Simulated assay, not measured.
Amino acid sequence: MNVLLLKEPRESDSGPDPYIKELARYGLSATLIPVLSFKFVSLTALSDRVFQPEKHGGLIFTSPRAVEAVKMCIENSALREEWNTVKEKWNAKSVYVVGKATASLVESLGLNPQGEHTGTADVLSRLIVEREDPKILPLLFPCGTLKREVLPTTLRENGLPLEAVTVYQTVDHPDLEINITHYFSKQGIPASIAFFSPSGVKFCLELLKRLVGPQLDQIKFAAIGPTTADALEAEGLRVSCLAEKPTSQHLAKSVVQALNTGPSDW
């Protein structure tokens, strides 16, 4: 059976995407179509803050793209050679992350991530509230234009200072419609379609409805997490597969369970 993954390719170019590899272990043929494109903004402002850890109480990353923005600041800065000293100052504070993918990228910068097990910004925000004192300096939060407000709101309601810096804009991938249309013309309707962000739902759903028509109900829709599941359900779609955690293993398990149980709930 075929599975369509509407997500970004893995950050590393080495080897197959872990989601394709994991689904193949169960005999499923997965195809990945990139959904999103990103434009980085305000990198000068971000760089100023990244190289002044003494003005902040810690760092928060909820997306790989935010980490990429920081990496660009480090590589392009005249202060690049000072990063080894600067990163230790950040490591003396808390560097919070959501998910293993983001944590891995943070580690590649020489930083020590905390909270990768949380899985969502909602759970991470509660962890931060438990650990941090309201008297700390503002937590630096590089983020995108489409960030959810749950984390800023939770921290604000609990008196924790936060400095959010918008460092990237999210738009649909320029080849998205061509790639999805080509997939359906060659592969037909997949048994399952997995979404990895609310933005993916926003950019893909109308096209999928046009291509699939009344057979849309036959597809098992999968979500990498509760936020994406909420976006699908808001569009009137039934989520058959919800990954317990945002990993390839958990998503593959949920897809396999849903496909093996037919139309009934699993």
Rank of each mutant, 00 (worst) to 15 (best):
L155W: 05
C73I: 09
V239W: 08
N91P: 03
C204Q: 06
V165L: 11
V123A: 13
L176K: 02
L32S: 03
V70P: 12
V35K: 01
T181D: 05
V123G: 00
T120K: 00
G110Y: 09
A30N: 01
C143L: 12
L146E: 12
A101Y: 01
L137Q: 11
S104A: 15
S264H: 12
L5C: 05
G115P: 07
E116H: 14
Q187A: 15
I128Q: 10
K7L: 07
S12D: 12
P190H: 12
L151A: 08
P246A: 01
G115N: 08
K87P: 10
L208T: 00
G115W: 06
T170V: 14
E157Q: 14
Y96W: 15
A258Y: 11
E116V: 03
S37N: 13
L237N: 00
L43Y: 12
L237T: 02
K39Q: 13
M72T: 12
F195I: 09
G57E: 12
Y19N: 10
G110E: 08
K100C: 03
N2E: 10
G110R: 11
R25P: 02
I128T: 01
S77F: 05
S240A: 15
R65Y: 11
R65P: 13
V201P: 00
Y168I: 03
G144C: 02
F221W: 06
L232S: 09
N260G: 15
H117I: 08
G225K: 04
P214I: 10
K21M: 09
P16V: 11
E149N: 12
G57M: 06
R156D: 05
D172E: 15
S63R: 04
L211G: 02
S29D: 13
I128R: 02
T247D: 15
G27K: 01
L211D: 08
S77Y: 08
V106W: 09
K7E: 06
G188D: 13
S77T: 07
L140R: 00
T62Q: 04
S185L: 15
L216R: 07
V41F: 03
